[in-house]
Nucleic acid binder design. Structure first.
Lengths: 130, 130
DNA sequence: GTAACCACTATACTTTTGTATAGCGCAAAT
DNA sequence: ATTTGCGCTATACAAAAGTATAGTGGTTAC
């Protein structure tokens, strides 16, 4: 295995690398996508269930975001022809695999918070007698 | 090792877990943070260097985003008292460690794209004679 | 028959985010 | 003396994202 050269890195950086990153960013963009995805990790849910489980969301936003998540292949919408119709939303395969990404994000978030706090502690210690 | 219970998951989900995730989301929020971070992965840079390397960014946005990245502990700003002053921006330790997160995001983005494309292929195949 | 549940949609509005353009104070180069 | 580069800031505006509120068309429960 040869290590990637600086040039390769730059090339990577300008092409498919950036596209892939932007695809992933689209999944977490906006205020409500992560709560929705989070709720769906526990299994399929109906519209009203999601609305109740996600505090503060409006029907308009939920509807909009679910459509977007469906469009980018994160969520499947299934309509059952009961009376009246019931609708269920669930994560696709790659939707489920997104937990990997969210796990790393949480992990980094925790570490980063510790890191920042330690710096504040050291700062406070060094300035305790002033 | 005991497996996490449903209840534990829910608890995790509602407390520090969410805070950590939101911290991480703050790092990638907005149009210009990832390009800036990406540029700084290659080493410290001056203001004008960043401006030149990131196509389309304005001085106002660069300045704003750098301040935010500094505020959340991603970037360090160093002023050298040359004449006139020169200023350098570089990633902090946790700023550098953010490459881990971006790598996973890119990885997932690539896989997800393949996944979506395959589905389209299968769809096209199944509807080839219609 | 009216009240409530479901799965939304429509309209109007506010807030946030990003863009465009100009300019400042300083110094070195031409 | 004027232009150029540096590291920004200020002002005004446009676009995107989000909120608030009401309403639709159907069904079942009381």
């Amino acid at each position: 295995m040869s290590r990637t050269s600086k040039l390769d890195q730059v090339k990577n950086c300008s092409a498919s690398y950036v596209l892939a990153l932007n695809d992933t960013l689209a999944v977490v963009s906006g205020k409500w996508k992560t709560p929705i995805i989070g709720a769906l990790f526990f299994g399929k849910k109906r519209f009203k269930e999601l609305e109740r489980e996600i505090p503060g969301i409006t029907a308009r936003m939920l509807s909009k975001e679910l459509k977007e998540l469906e469009a980018i292949g994160m969520v499947i919408r299934t309509v059952y022809d009961t009376m009246p119709v019931s609708v269920e939303y669930e994560l696709t395969r790659s939707g489920k695999s997104f937990s990997r990404v969210m796990d790393v994000m949480v992990e980094w978030g925790i570490e980063h918070r510790e890191c920042v706090m330690n710096k504040q502690k050291v700062f406070a210690k060094n300035h305790a007698n002033s």
